[in-house]
Design a binder for these strands. Structure first.
Lengths: 335, 335
DNA sequence: TTGTATGCGTTATCAT
DNA sequence: ATGATAACGCATACAA
């Protein structure tokens, strides 16, 4: 049979309530009493039932991650970071299935909240900016933390990198190498990060006195195929760009593939830059120059904010990015 | 406040128990009664509390995935397949953190089982062959399904592909192209699939009257770095192989990178074959010839077996693999 | 600092 | 086919 708090109470010779106190690390427990209880817990191998705890108490010891991203690496890093933090508090993570094309998103989330009594949610783009989801959670008084929010940033705590500055740094790097026609592949507009990165690109150009040429800017959707399509279009221009800055690594991989099929040497005839440095770090060939986005760290901090005391103030926590320069962004080719 | 079964009972005018019957799709409920209850459920937007259900009943409507794999793509596909199946039954998935290096695996799993009362577990390699874990679950009477088990395959239901035959098919393909010195990079021995794939390689050689040359076989660990290391060693041989069969895609990517750094044309001077076709499908350049392992389908079937009626017999469900031939495995170079 | 009684929302048992 | 009532294992309010 199952070991219950009652058994611990009996073995240790104290009341159920006192055992509960020890489990929840409440104050006002005698040192001796605590020791007795802990001994009994260890002896019986007692593990409190999450179901009973969440039914009786205010906490469920579960949080949920709402994450639908085209990149498995992103998802993996998000989960890893969150779990690292949750493990410290004995909290579990529910990986909620979410199909970005599903019309049932709102219903799914409401169902999740009601059914599991999760202590909180972590939202990643593009859900972190979904007005109706935010509204729903606010109305229901459910705690949540947003990753990379783009609007209403003071609604709840969040973690992020400075996407605009990162894109500016990357673009400036390309400009410094002598590039003047730099193609840019944006993400889907529903991702706030897409606009942020595009603005960084535009500002870096402006600082060099260059104006943004709309023909050099394409819309992708952060995945391989859209990056390849955009590259095809850019490289087919009468005056093609000498460098392409894809605002995600998967799209950059698409660019590389297309460049190769067209017989272009990289970086000899085309410089390629990416953004994220997860999917392709280490093993795409040739290596990309990228902005490294510390996804795992953002996730860890998001969980940290979510697990903070209920009265903790709303906090925006910025994480540092890094420019990783590899051989693929060489100077402009001679002649 | 929270909507409870009591509210539904009041609004629909039937007893709590009858509402429960409708929710659980039990028999012996009048058509009219059922309709009334369903109307009330919809009107009140009632969602039963998972916590209360698992406390009172025998089911928790939650299952857990124990998966620690070096490849984010594998993890992603596993989760996706499982969630697709679980969604049909309104069951949730807990993604249990598991560090393959952790000494606490057994304790973690026991804790998970006790704390959450999960209805079952899905185990992926190498945990699917972990003797103590299997023993623990058996002892505790916890239901579980194994993915790609290597031993004691009748212990519980499982899903798998015929790894040995797949490796044989791949190797035969290379032999047919004229290759006679084919390097092989195995996975870590703790993965049963590693031995299975190696045996397939050896058998294919045998069928051509070739004996396995131990110097051409290296041990990796299914990740990029180990594949690169093994390739370095193989290509540094006095008589290097003309083809390398890496038994995972990540290792194959390592091989490709090393080949490139050494100035080898692929497939001109070296043919490269992989296994899995998840991480690299579509975007590694040059494309690999691989065995496509339908991870998502294996996951879906695993969940299907786990959610089957309690009295369902133990079942081994095989899923088909596919040989994907791309340009990278060309014939042996002339001269 | 410790103990007692009550209730969380559902399923299970046993009635009718 | 439907209903009343006792669990389930824990936290909470309130006492002592």
């Amino acid at each position: 049979m199952r070991v219950t708090i009652k058994d611990v109470s009996r073995v240790s010779g104290v009341s159920i309530k006192t055992v509960s106190r020890v489990l929840n690390k409440e104050r006002y427990v005698g040192v001796e009493t605590r020791a007795k209880v802990e001994a009994a817990v260890a002896e019986l191998n007692f593990r409190p039932s999450t179901a009973a705890r969440s039914l009786a108490g205010k906490r469920s010891f579960q949080i949920a991650l709402i994450c639908d991203n085209p990149s498995p690496y992103y998802v993996y890093e998000m989960q890893s970071g969150i779990r690292d933090r949750c493990a410290q508090d004995g909290v579990r993570m529910i990986a909620q299935p979410y199909d970005r094309n599903a019309a049932t998103l709102l219903d799914d989330i409401e169902n999740l909240v009601d059914a599991t009594h999760v202590d909180g949610l972590i939202l990643t783009p593009p859900v972190s900016d979904h007005p109706q989801v935010l509204d729903l959670l606010e109305r229901r008084g459910v705690r949540f933390v947003r990753v990379s929010p783009g609007s209403a940033v003071d609604l709840a705590s969040s973690t992020f990198i400075d996407n605009e500055r990162a894109a500016r740094v990357m673009t400036a790097h390309l400009l410094e190498l002598g590039h003047r026609r730099i193609g840019f592949i944006a993400g889907h507009p529903s991702y706030a990060t897409s606009g942020q990165r595009m603005r960084g690109y535009a500002r870096a150009l402006g600082q060099e006195g260059l104006s943004l040429d709309p023909i050099l800017v394409r819309e992708g959707s952060y995945d391989f195929a859209s990056g390849a399509r955009a590259a095809e279009a850019l490289l087919a221009l009468d005056v093609p760009p000498t460098a392409i800055f894809a605002s995600s690594d998967d799209m950059a991989a698409g660019v590389l593939t297309v460049a190769h099929r067209r017989g272009l040497a990289v970086p000899g005839q085309l410089s390629v830059a990416g953004f994220d440095d997860a999917a392709l770090a280490g093993f795409v060939w040739p290596p990309l120059t990228t902005i490294r986005q510390p996804t795992r760290e953002m996730a860890y901090q998001a969980a940290d904010l979510l697990l903070a005391p209920a009265d903790a103030p709303i906090e925006r926590r910025e994480v540092a990015f890094e420019l990783i320069v590899r051989e693929s962004t060489g100077p402009v080719a001679q002649g």
